[in-house]
Nucleic acid binder design. Structure first.
Lengths: 201, 201, 201, 201
DNA sequence: AATGAATGAGTGTTCATTCAT
DNA sequence: TATGAATGAACACTCATTCAT
């Protein structure tokens, strides 16, 4: 990688980092490219040079999230040995880890799923595709659990995956809405406890 | 009520209904007053005549939510006799009822909590006030459960209330994001089952 | 005059008084009919009922000014016996009296002459007509003074009338711009002194 | 100065020139930024690019006036050797020169002093600051004249400065209101004559 | 005599986007 | 690689005006 490529990468990273921060703080629509560019110590022109449009920038963030957040979560589910609940707990842990170390990225995903959830745009499609990977993986794990008898919870796979994601995303949102008020690790611990005996019971 | 008052009420209702619908579909920032006015079969001018500003219109929606959604939820928690879990289940049922009959209002509340959660504006304050009423009521119920021995779940009250709200809001979001894919009542039933044994266990 | 007529007159006076006050404070364009109506303890509708439009309301104010300000000034010039300077001093005294007792009306006239001076609208025409009566009367007095030898100041009548009005209006503006800072009567006294020896010299 | 800077300067000048013209013709409130932009052969967006807001544009015009009009006037007063009346005459000459060569700028200053005089906004503050520099300089000259005996006119310094500015501004307004009707240089000559013997007398 | 609901054109302002350099 | 000038469409908001009552 030559000097040019390095500087390119640095600039792109500056922009995506700034974009994550601003989008979460203010939401997609309320964030101007000017604000992102300023936060990245560059100009609007650069953002266009690298990403072409605001929408494409957001789609690029979706890709990052896919690689850094969703993939590890799916892997956690698929590679954890044990019962379905074990896999769910692993998923929640990976998520809450990301929520602690890269909170902006995880939050951005959840936030976008709400800001665009009911629409019919490329961005809405993009966010739904992220989620459907998660659903599929949870549902597969649940069905596997049913087959090998490690799960006795009776429900449709869709209801189960929705429930798991609901708990996970709801927890992340609460943690961030009440920042300062509540203790993150404690929240995770209790949610795990509830899910554990809840899904086992 | 004379003719004038009737037309007044009708216009205001048209506007608030339209606003709820549009704000949920597109979010607060992405919804123009023109769009709301058109949806309400009126003009922008009328919206200003009745509400004065976009922000005040949204705050008015918060008041409606307070009366129609949050108050019934708080009442359900406070007036249900029995254990803490019984109260939580009552809360979830009221919420899911509202989610079925007035889905836009409940969703609007959740959506706004995310679009404004981290900001410092009158709207952000308004939405946080709605939530803090809920938190307080759940925390009181939990502490009462501890005192009278109907609850053995050990956690800080804040973590408990966050968890409950997380499950509730997360469920509502999932239900709406996967509309058509999943069965609402079944989702509620399963969440109740999980919470029931999860918090009792 | 029956009860109805009395109430009509009172309402019209409330509106014109309010209009004078608001127009001076904020200027014609920056004053809304709503603001005037509120100041008059009536509604916009009433203003339209009585005056038909914002422009017509302003033209009505011009008529009031004609009767209460300009006519007395012209009379003072025409009925004062003595030299041209005596007449000018009489004019200035009537003006400064009006400036003390009905300051808003005189100021409104000056202000409008500037806000509309260079335009070609009914309002601009109206204000110019007010002034041209004044000019004519001063010029006649000056020419009379030249004929009967009571004036030795040599200039075109237009220059003289402009000068007199310039001093008068300029003085009124300064008095109002520096309200509190300067003493009105003293300003008038000094201006009279300057004009007296200046035009006689 | 590179090409960019040149185009920048040209655009800014086009805008400020257009703004001066339009503001005088129609007043501040009655002039839309669209009109200014069109007159400057640019778009509203450009005006915002360079000045940020209508108010800031006007404040920029105030700065120009400070440099091109008020400073020369103050300098004329301070650097003229001789009696107080000599200094006043110098001030009037500088002003009437500006009134001939840059009539729009001087008029703009006077006009704004009336449109905003009684208000409490940044623009009102700005215009008052322009005037207070003038007042101070005239008052200092008058007091110096009293001390060195070159002036025998007895009045408060404030009344004197008000009078001088009144005559100056009133003259400028009259000249412009009666454009075509009266002869500028003759007006100035006569005013000078009046002031000369008036203040000396 | 007076109100208040409703409108529509217009205003200041923002912002994604383009493009020459 | 990156900038900054410029645009145009959209936005929240204002306001003179109309009209049924």
């Amino acid at each position: 990688m030559n000097k040019n490529q390095i500087s390119r990468e640095r600039s792109k990273t500056q922009i995506t980092d700034a974009a994550f921060r601003m989008f979460i703080e203010r939401g997609y629509h309320a964030t101007s490219l000017d604000a992102i560019a300023q936060e990245a110590n560059l100009t609007k022109g650069s953002v266009y040079f690298y990403f072409g449009s605001k929408e494409k920038l957001a789609l690029h963030l979706f890709n990052i999230i896919h690689d850094e957040i969703v993939c590890p979560q799916v892997e956690a589910i698929e590679q954890t040995r044990g019962s379905f609940v074990d896999k769910v707990v692993a998923y929640i842990h990976v998520g809450s880890n990301a929520g602690v170390h890269r909170p902006h990225k995880l939050l951005f995903m959840i936030q976008m799923s709400i800001e665009f959830g009911f629409q019919d745009t490329p961005l809405a499609e993009g966010i739904r595709k992220l989620y459907s990977g998660l659903y599929a993986s949870i549902e597969a794990a649940y069905e596997q659990g049913l087959r090998d008898g490690t799960t006795s919870f009776k429900a449709t796979p869709q209801a189960v995956s929705s429930m798991v994601v609901a708990v996970h995303d709801g927890m992340m949102l609460q943690y961030n809405l009440r920042q300062g008020e509540i203790d993150g690790p404690e929240l995770v611990k209790n949610v795990r406890k509830m899910v554990l005996s809840g899904l086992n019971g």
